[in-house]
């Protein structure tokens, strides 16, 4: 009896310790985010106060109104368009390839898979030199397709890897049964395979969207006019110059840039984790 209560007490103590550690880690790790939000709603005078105010005394949305000029809205529009386009293209090409790799099961297709995974380590600036020359010859520099090509390069290997996992779990018997019933190959892929792979598409598309939204260098290099800039490049080249030291405005933009990803996260939490960890975790 005494033995048990002793264990009980120790368990209790270790629980309390766990909660304390959790609370401290949350406070430390989330502090930068809280500070981002707090600053975004401060007035010009309040942001430079010493000691700083932990929460805006008179919250104002002025920083947002200042920062969101038509140019800034254009950057957001460009990034959303590019990320959505990349998600469609990368997921489509990747899904076809993943299914083919699983069904062909040939050493050559495994080599293709290996090449794609290895390509993740190819230095981007090295590829970008030739891509830049190629895209300028095609007259595609400063267009959306140029940036989309770059972002497909980044994401296609991971999409193939992710969807290969899904394709492997498809029972081949279902397809065979459809053959026996007289369905053609295209019909089977359209009516049997595609619907079964849909959860994989969601995870892959989320991964692609998030990666494209984050990407900086392709957007910076393959666009030249401010009308075509994706968000990170636009912020760096125009906004940060124009709004230097106007911290509330800068934080307003930094906070808003997380919104599309936040929406994706809230809408598809499970697929989001699956997609962004890219198959490293099977949830």
């Amino acid at each position: 009896m005494t033995e048990l209560s002793h264990i009980d007490r120790r368990l209790h103590a270790s629980r309390i310790a766990s909660y304390v550690v959790m609370a401290v880690s949350l406070i430390v790790l989330l502090f930068p985010l809280a500070w981002l939000l707090a600053t975004a709603f401060k007035s010009r005078g309040e942001v430079f106060m010493v000691p700083p105010t932990w929460w805006p005394r008179q919250p104002t949305v002025e920083p947002f109104a200042d920062a969101f000029t038509p140019t800034m809205l254009r950057f957001f529009f460009n990034s959303i368009l590019i990320a959505a386009l990349t998600a469609v293209v990368s997921t489509a090409i990747g899904a076809c390839a993943a299914y083919a790799i699983v069904r062909l099961q040939h050493w050559a297709t495994n080599l293709v898979l290996l090449f794609f995974l290895g390509s993740l380590a190819f230095p981007l600036p090295l590829l970008m030199i030739t891509l830049y020359l190629l895209l300028s010859r095609l007259g595609l520099i400063d267009t959306y397709p140029a940036v989309v090509v770059g972002h497909v390069i980044l994401t296609l290997p991971v999409v193939i890897w992710l969807l290969k996992g899904f394709a492997e779990s498809l029972p081949v018997e279902v397809e065979e049964a459809a053959y026996v019933d007289g369905a053609g190959v295209l019909r089977i892929i359209w009516l049997v395979v595609l619907p079964m792979m849909r959860p994989g598409f969601t995870a892959a598309a989320i991964y692609v969207f998030v990666t494209s939204w984050n990407e900086f260098t392709f957007g910076l290099t393959f666009t030249t006019s401010s009308d075509m800039r994706p968000l990170p490049a636009g912020i760096t080249l125009l906004f940060l110059q124009e709004f230097q030291y106007q911290w509330p405005q800068m934080m307003a933009v930094a906070a808003t840039a997380t919104v599309p990803i936040l929406v994706l996260f809230l809408a598809f939490q499970k697929n989001f984790v699956e997609g962004v960890t890219a198959g490293a975790v099977k949830s």
């Binding site: 984050n214 900086f216 912020i235 997380t258 996260f265």
Partner: peptide
């Protein structure tokens, strides 16, 4: 923290 873009 995960949803914060690198630029932010």
């Amino acid at each position: 923290i995960w949803i914060v873009p690198w630029i932010s």
